[in-house]
Amino acid sequence: MNRVREINRIIRIRNSTTAPLEPVGWSKCGFCVFRNACWDAAVRDKDIATVPYVDQGAWHQLFGSGVKNYHQLYELSEELLAEIKRPWGKHRRRIGPARARKIKKQIQALKTNRIIMASPPPLPPGYRPGTRPLMMFDLENDVFDPDLGVKVYLWGCLLVKESGTPAAKLIVAGPGVEGDRQGWLDFLAWRSPWHRGQAS
């Protein structure tokens, strides 16, 4: 049933002569080729969709009521915002006080161009500012082509020691199941300078 509705929606969009009214959204736009154009326009217009914590349902409800940019949204009191009901699956649900509060704080940060602290951010357990060594990982997978046989195509690891230049290991997997396997083995086989130091 949902598929039929989605196909009908696509047909409607294809037949229309004006652009559809759709909010930008990070997960929704993630791999869309129009992302830069849509996001540039949304950020320029201070569209309420660019306020983290304004979900798609809230966007539709607010935009439909004439609240289009975050300056207008900021005019609403936290209490009023919390009571606004937006589409939520098959139902409608209040934005609620917790999300309303976050939206207001988020807009305050955007309007003042300042960071607002809700509570002190933690570092990893056992870490204080300046604690080293650190390991940074960056792995990426190929979501477009499951037939390629490569699950992770990019393996990145950065070791930051107490002193000296951080050491990086970067691996790009070859194609096919064998490339995937070799990428993983190469990653495991990296004996970082720190490990070598420990061993000697």
Partner: peptide, 15 residues
């Protein structure tokens, strides 16, 4: 998590 749960940033995303 450390950033998004504790800070409000002047950015449209926390990516």
């Amino acid at each position: 998590d450390a950033i998004s749960k504790h800070l409000f940033l002047p950015t449209p995303s926390y990516g």
